[in-house]
């Protein structure tokens, strides 16, 4: 492990933790603007976290120790996920710990713990949300894996850093398979991050909510950690998307100075991505929960066809 590796790893981690709530705030702000509302301001997620961390945490009488541990585990999973995604530099000492498949596994661990914690109290909303979350999750996961496999086939490696290195720093080429994978990835990230066509993050309507139903029983610092983890998840998904489909501007291992340019590049890419996310969310209507399997089946299908096209065309 070199000093520059350590530096870029720490920088990426700190940047993820600090910027993740800002990204959520940015998306919410644009959503508000696009809907002709004035919006809560960019810093609202930070104020929210500050408020929640200072509040007392109320636990249900029937809560087991598992219920208390879950927020820390989920937060840990998301932090590690952000640490192994090459968002600034491909020189990440921690990235040896997990490749693309293990990354999907990390998201799955977080999801399982969140669902179990929601069922732990025994309220009907919790188990309803948990079931819906697992329904969405088990359909989204193979699609995400297939997307990552398409990129892995191009780079001949499942390590995210190698994928980014080979996509960003070789001669420019058009990959039709990545077009399929890109659309599939967009579908999956909408489903996984509880965004509008699948779930509305701003609603507490019992008929439709998924993510909000899961965290209904949490309060205080636990809720803060879970909300922060949700922001980190959105951040992680955005960074995976940027790393695979728009990898330009990510610093190479041998060039630590490129980090200086990597940060504004990342921030501007995230700003554009966040705006597009808010735009799509505003333009689309929330679909019925029974349409979600169809939506995710098309994502899976597109990702599989991406792999097939790669095998057919050889690029």
């Amino acid at each position: 492990m070199t000093l520059s590796g350590l530096l870029s790893q720490c920088l990426a981690l700190v940047l993820a933790l600090v910027l993740a709530p800002l990204l959520t705030g940015w998306v919410n702000q644009w959503r508000a603007w696009l809907q002709n509302r004035s919006g809560p301001g960019l810093l609202q997620p930070y104020r929210m976290l500050h408020k929640l961390f200072n509040k007392e945490s109320v636990l249900a009488e029937s809560a087991s120790p598992f219920f208390r541990a879950a927020p820390y585990i989920i937060f840990g999973c998301m932090t590690l996920a952000c640490a192994i995604i090459p968002m600034l530099s491909t020189d990440l000492p921690l990235s040896i710990a997990a490749d693309a498949i293990a990354l999907v596994g990390l998201f799955a661990v977080a999801r399982v713990f969140l669902s179990l914690a929601a069922m732990d109290i025994g309220t009907s909303f919790g188990s309803l949300g948990a079931r819906r979350e697992m329904l969405v999750g088990f359909l989204a996961e193979p699609a995400l894996l297939a997307v990552l496999f398409t990129a892995s086939l191009i780079a001949n490696s499942t390590a995210l850093t190698t994928i980014v290195t080979s996509l960003a720093h070789r001669e420019f080429a058009i990959y039709p398979s990545l077009a399929f994978a890109g659309i599939a990835f967009t579908f999956v990230s909408f489903a996984e991050n509880a965004r509008v066509p699948v779930d509305n993050p701003a609603t507490h309507l019992e008929l439709t909510m998924i993510h909000e139903a899961l965290i209904l029983e949490y309060s205080g610092r636990h809720l803060a950690l879970i909300e922060w983890a949700a922001s980190l998840k959105l951040f992680a998904y955005s960074c995976i998307g940027l790393a695979i489909f728009f990898p330009w501007g990510i610093a190479e291992a041998e060039a630590p100075l490129a980090l200086i340019f990597a940060i504004p590049a990342l921030v501007s890419k995230l700003a554009i991505g966040g705006f597009l996310l808010a735009l799509i969310e505003t333009l689309s209507a929330k679909m019925r929960i029974f349409r979600v399997p169809e939506f995710l089946a098309s994502a899976f299908m597109l990702a599989v066809i991406g792999m097939l096209v790669h095998l057919l065309l050889g690029v």
Binding site: A173, I174, P176, S177, A179, F180, V309, L313, V315
Partner: peptide, 8 residues
């Protein structure tokens, strides 16, 4: 490659 893209 552009032809391939249009095909995709």
């Amino acid at each position: 490659q552009l032809v391939n893209l249009f095909a995709a």
